[in-house]
C-alpha cells in the first residue's frame, strides 16, 4: 500500500512537476497514453476508497490533470470516457458515500468539462439524483453536489439548451417544488444561485449566437405564471441574499417583451405592492447596475 501511494505521488509529480522542476511535455504525453491504454483510470477510481487520505488527494489530482492532457491535439481522456461511461455512474454514486464524495466529486467536475460526457450525465437518470444530493445534510458534500449540478447546467450551453428543451417539464417541476420551494435555507440559497447563473448564461447565449432557438427555453421559463409566483415568493424571503438573487431572475420576467396575459395579470394585480417593495429594496453597498436594473423593473411594472 505504501508503494502504491508512492507511485501515485510519482505520477503526480510527473504531471505537475515538483517544486523545482516544471513538468516535461513528452513525459506527460507518454504517461497519458499509457494511463488510458492500461485502464489505469478505472483501477484508480474503483480502488480510491481503499487508499489513505493523502493518496486519495494525489489520485484526484492525477485524474483531474489527465482530463486536460492532449496527445497529438486529441483529448485522450474524453475518448476513453466515452467508451467507459459506467465510470461516470460510479463517480456520481460517490455522493452517497461520505468518505469518497469530495474526491469523486472533484474528478466528476473535471470529467464533465468534456462536452460529450456532460451530455451523457445530463441525459442520464443521474440528473434526478442531484435533487437529493444537493439536500444532503453534510454541508461539504451538498455544496460539492451543488457545484457539480451548476457546472452541468451552465458549462456547455448548447447542450444544456437541448437538454432543457427536451426535459423542461420534469426538470423545472422538480427544481421549483423541491429546491426553490424548500423550507431549508441552504437549499433555497443554492438553488436560486444556480437558477440565476443559468438564466444569465442563457441570456448571454442568446446574445452571442443571435439565435433565438437557444433562448427558447429561457422565453418559456419567463413566460410561466408558476415560475413567476415562486420567484415573487422568494423576493420576500427572510434572507436578503435570496431576495437579491431572486430579483436578478425576477427582472427577466418583467423585461420580457412578450409577457403572456397571465403574467401581466399577476404583475398588475400586485403592482402597488411590488412598487412599494422595490422602493424599499436596497442592497448594503452601492451598486449602480443593481439600481439601474431596479429602475428598469419599476418602469416596466408601472407601465403595464
Amino acid at each position: 500500500m505504501a508503494e502504491l501511494s508512492r507511485n501515485i505521488r510519482e505520477l503526480k509529480s510527473i504531471l505537475y512537476g515538483n517544486g523545482e522542476q516544471e513538468p516535461v511535455t513528452e513525459a506527460c504525453v507518454q504517461l497519458t497514453q499509457e494511463f488510458f491504454r492500461e485502464n489505469t483510470l478505472r483501477l484508480l477510481i474503483i480502488c480510491l476508497p481503499k487508499l489513505n487520505l493523502e493518496t486519495r488527494k494525489d489520485a484526484t489530482q492525477v485524474v483531474a490533470n489527465l482530463q486536460r492532457q492532449q496527445v497529438s491535439s486529441r483529448i485522450v481522456a474524453s475518448e476513453y470516457l466515452e467508451s467507459n461511461k459506467d465510470l461516470l455512474d460510479i463517480l456520481i454514486s460517490g455522493y452517497e458515500n461520505m468518505d469518497i464524495a469530495l474526491h469523486y466529486g472533484a474528478m466528476l467536475r473535471e470529467c464533465i468539462r468534456h462536452q460529450s460526457i456532460a451530455r451523457y450525465v445530463l441525459e442520464s437518470e443521474h440528473m434526478k439524483k442531484f435533487f437529493d444530493y444537493i439536500q444532503l445534510p453534510n454541508f461539504d458534500i451538498a455544496s460539492d453536489a451543488s457545484a457539480t449540478f451548476k457546472e452541468l447546467l451552465t458549462r456547455h450551453k448548447a447542450t444544456v439548451a437541448e437538454f432543457l428543451s427536451k426535459n423542461y417539464d420534469w426538470f423545472f417541476q422538480e427544481f421549483n417544488s423541491r429546491l426553490l420551494s424548500s423550507t431549508n435555507y441552504i437549499t433555497k440559497r443554492q438553488a436560486i444561485k444556480i437558477l440565476m447563473v443559468m438564466c444569465f448564461s442563457f441570456q448571454l447565449l442568446g446574445d452571442m449566437l443571435l439565435d433565438r432557438s437557444n433562448s427558447a427555453v429561457m422565453m418559456r421559463y419567463v413566460s410561466s405564471k408558476d415560475n413567476l409566483m415562486i420567484l415573487m415568493n422568494l423576493l420576500r424571503d427572510s434572507s436578503k441574499n435570496i431576495q437579491i438573487e431572486a430579483f436578478h431572475v425576477f427582472k427577466l420576467f418583467a423585461a420580457n417583451k412578450n409577457k403572456p396575459p397571465e403574467v401581466v395579470n399577476i404583475l398588475v394585480t400586485n403592482r402597488s405592492k411590488l412598487l412599494r417593495f422595490f422602493a424599499g429594496f436596497k442592497i448594503d453597498k452601492e451598486d449602480e447596475q443593481f439600481e439601474a436594473d431596479k429602475e428598469q423593473v419599476i418602469k416596466e411594472i408601472s407601465g403595464l
Binding site: R113, R155, F200, I244, I283
Partner: peptide, 21 residues
C-alpha cells in the same frame, strides 16, 4: 452575488477553470 452581470460570468468560469478546486 450582488452584481449579476459581469461577475456571474467571470465567477463561473473563474471558479471552474482556476480556483474552482
Amino acid at each position: 452575488m450582488h452584481a449579476p452581470s459581469a461577475p456571474v460570468l467571470s465567477s463561473s468560469s473563474y471558479f471552474s477553470d482556476l480556483a474552482g478546486t
